[in-house]
């Protein structure tokens, strides 16, 4: 591998280069390392779980097919979640069930405790339901930050936005979630 490659220490970048050279075991290593983070990322955005797994598989198929032309221009996590977000947005477009444009959380009706669908008093269920009401960019930004522990810079790269925009989305997402969950915590 090129000594000047800034991502040479990223084990997943190495796996991609090995896959590019024909080592199929490297692909399995990538899948085993990233299957759970990816499925959970999708699971927070779409239901049921089988659909989240299906989308995760589509991402890995894309990674496999793109391996021959892969060039390490970013951390592998950045590369992977770029593809993942692309698939998620495509999924929304096909399903036409989620708002893709930026929507002010203040305009969204907050989930109320009287709502029969969330009367389970299950904080996890309420949280999932609340997340669904977030616009895609806010939900993706806050999940990549908190669930995937990516940096603001990485999130900005994945979402093709400025770091300032990412911080704003995350701030608004937090505001909305806190407002929605304050009666349940």
């Amino acid at each position: 591998m090129d000594e000047t490659n800034p991502y040479k220490d990223d084990p997943d970048v190495n796996c991609m280069l090995r896959l590019q050279a024909g080592d199929l075991k490297a692909f399995d290593e990538i899948v085993l390392r990233w299957q759970n983070p990816l499925i959970n990322y999708f699971h927070r955005s779409i239901q049921p779980r089988e659909q989240a797994e299906d989308l995760a598989q589509m991402v890995f198929i894309r990674v496999y097919k793109a391996a021959s032309g892969y060039e390490p221009r970013a951390k592998f996590s950045t590369y992977l979640f770029q593809i993942a977000r692309h698939h998620l947005i495509n999924h929304y477009r096909h399903q036409s069930r989620r708002p893709l444009d930026i929507q002010d959380p203040a305009d969204i009706q907050a989930v109320s405790p009287e709502d029969s669908t969330i009367a389970l008093n299950d904080l996890e269920a309420i949280f999932e339901k609340t997340l669904e009401h977030l616009p895609e960019n806010q939900r993706t930004a806050i999940l990549l930050l908190k669930q995937q522990e990516l940096s603001y810079q990485e999130i900005a790269e994945i979402m093709d936005a400025s770091e300032g925009a990412v911080k704003t989305w995350i701030f608004r997402a937090r505001q909305f979630l806190k407002q929605a969950l304050k009666d349940f915590v």
């Binding site: 085993l32 299957q35 759970n36 983070p37 959970n40 779980r49 995760a56 908190k146 669930q147």
Partner: peptide, 15 residues
């Protein structure tokens, strides 16, 4: 805590 949770585990036959 809620945001950082990863409640779903991949199926055994995922790969």
């Amino acid at each position: 805590r809620l945001l950082s949770r990863k409640p779903v585990v991949a199926s055994n036959d995922f790969l």
